[in-house]
Amino acid sequence: MANNKKKNLTPIQQEYQQFQSEREVKRPVVKNCIKAFFVGGLICLIGQFIQTFFIYNFNFTEQTAGNPTVAVMIFIAMLLTGFGVYDRLAQFAGAGSAVPVTGFGNAVISAAIEHRSEGFILGVGGNMFKLAGSVIMSGVFAAFIVALIKTLLIQWGAL
């Protein structure tokens, strides 16, 4: 891929890109991964506490406690987004705050806040899912493929 792209570049461009790349500050990938692991883990731990709370204090089972837990987590993400904290957390945590359901909530809520100035219909309604839309699309498509494979395996008697 990278080599394919380079084919269209002149020698001067290639030489400069090499020159530039030597001076470019790279993303600290290992450090980012470690931070993402711990912050992401911490968010999941909080989620686990909330789920356990619902199971022990209300009439929820392990299967049914998922929905109220997700709702509470997204509500917290909404508050943090509205108060301008979530984006700062994300600069530190990276994927750690983007991958859990709170990151999905943040993507929807931040877009809704951002486009409130263009009105409720065209602004909020039209833009709310501009970031999260691709996540939903990928999720639905992936689920479809997996369901297709499962159906075929059952048809062929493999399952």
């Binding site: 980012n32 931040s110 806040i113 486009h115 970031l131």
Partner: peptide, 12 residues
């Protein structure tokens, strides 16, 4: 991205 969206910016 939207101002409050949590995307990690690279050092560049």
């Amino acid at each position: 991205y939207p101002t409050e969206y949590g995307a990690q910016k690279p050092p560049t």
